[in-house]
Simulated scan of single mutants.
Amino acid sequence: MNNVGKNIRRLRQKKGWTLVQIAEKVQVSVPAFSKIETGPTDINMSRLKQLADIFGVSILDILYDEGENPQEALHNEAAMLKAKIQEKEETVSNLQRKLIDLYEEVTKK
């Protein structure tokens, strides 16, 4: 959870907002928001979603460190798997054509 707090602080500072400004946006006290950033207070999903909306980022951008984007890694892996599936489908299609050709050759005799 400490990384989450650090990421929230980084996002707040990136926006140029003070603790007072973000606490008002989130509708909590400044000490309460400070505890979110420093780690003593665990953040729940609804608060996480609220902060993501306020910062204009995804929840994953708050959960993971900057530059560590699991969505991108999953997207790349999905693209690679789709390419492999397409390759296998082409192989199956070619084998089906060969099978049909062999069947027609055998039935002509």
Rank of each mutant, 00 (worst) to 15 (best):
residue 1 M to G: 10
residue 1 M to D: 13
residue 2 N to E: 11
residue 2 N to R: 10
residue 3 N to V: 01
residue 5 G to T: 02
residue 5 G to P: 09
residue 5 G to M: 02
residue 6 K to P: 04
residue 7 N to Q: 14
residue 7 N to I: 12
residue 7 N to E: 08
residue 7 N to R: 13
residue 8 I to C: 04
residue 9 R to I: 08
residue 9 R to M: 14
residue 9 R to T: 10
residue 10 R to V: 03
residue 10 R to G: 08
residue 11 L to C: 15
residue 11 L to A: 13
residue 14 K to Q: 11
residue 14 K to W: 05
residue 15 K to P: 08
residue 15 K to F: 04
residue 16 G to L: 02
residue 17 W to N: 04
residue 18 T to I: 12
residue 20 V to M: 05
residue 20 V to G: 02
residue 21 Q to F: 13
residue 21 Q to N: 14
residue 22 I to C: 02
residue 23 A to S: 15
residue 23 A to M: 00
residue 23 A to E: 05
residue 24 E to H: 12
residue 24 E to T: 01
residue 25 K to N: 04
residue 26 V to H: 05
residue 26 V to A: 01
residue 26 V to K: 13
residue 26 V to E: 02
residue 27 Q to P: 08
residue 28 V to S: 08
residue 29 S to V: 05
residue 29 S to Y: 04
residue 31 P to E: 03
residue 32 A to Q: 15
residue 33 F to Q: 13
residue 33 F to H: 05
residue 34 S to A: 10
residue 34 S to L: 00
residue 35 K to E: 07
residue 35 K to I: 02
residue 36 I to C: 12
residue 36 I to L: 15
residue 37 E to C: 04
residue 37 E to H: 05
residue 38 T to L: 01
residue 39 G to F: 01
residue 39 G to N: 09
residue 39 G to V: 06
residue 39 G to D: 11
residue 40 P to L: 06
residue 40 P to V: 04
residue 40 P to H: 02
residue 41 T to R: 14
residue 41 T to H: 09
residue 43 I to N: 06
residue 44 N to M: 03
residue 45 M to K: 12
residue 45 M to S: 15
residue 45 M to V: 15
residue 46 S to L: 12
residue 46 S to R: 07
residue 46 S to G: 14
residue 49 K to I: 09
residue 52 A to Y: 01
residue 54 I to N: 04
residue 54 I to D: 00
residue 56 G to L: 03
residue 57 V to D: 01
residue 57 V to C: 10
residue 58 S to N: 09
residue 59 I to F: 02
residue 60 L to V: 04
residue 61 D to I: 00
residue 62 I to W: 06
residue 63 L to R: 12
residue 63 L to Q: 01
residue 64 Y to H: 11
residue 64 Y to R: 12
residue 65 D to Y: 06
residue 66 E to Y: 00
residue 67 G to V: 02
residue 67 G to N: 08
residue 69 N to T: 03
residue 69 N to C: 00
residue 70 P to T: 11
residue 70 P to H: 00
residue 70 P to D: 01
residue 71 Q to D: 06
residue 71 Q to M: 12
residue 71 Q to C: 11
residue 71 Q to G: 10
residue 72 E to A: 10
residue 72 E to L: 14
residue 73 A to S: 04
residue 74 L to M: 11
residue 75 H to P: 03
residue 77 E to M: 00
residue 77 E to P: 13
residue 78 A to V: 01
residue 78 A to I: 14
residue 80 M to L: 12
residue 80 M to T: 08
residue 83 A to F: 03
residue 83 A to I: 00
residue 83 A to L: 07
residue 83 A to V: 04
residue 84 K to C: 03
residue 88 K to E: 15
residue 89 E to Y: 04
residue 89 E to V: 13
residue 90 E to T: 10
residue 92 V to D: 01
residue 92 V to C: 03
residue 95 L to M: 15
residue 95 L to A: 15
residue 95 L to H: 14
residue 96 Q to I: 14
residue 96 Q to V: 11
residue 97 R to D: 09
residue 97 R to Y: 12
residue 97 R to S: 14
residue 98 K to W: 06
residue 98 K to D: 11
residue 99 L to A: 11
residue 99 L to E: 11
residue 100 I to T: 15
residue 101 D to T: 08
residue 104 E to W: 05
residue 105 E to N: 14
residue 105 E to Y: 14
residue 106 V to G: 00
residue 106 V to F: 06
residue 107 T to D: 09
residue 108 K to C: 02
residue 108 K to H: 13
residue 109 K to C: 08
residue 109 K to F: 02
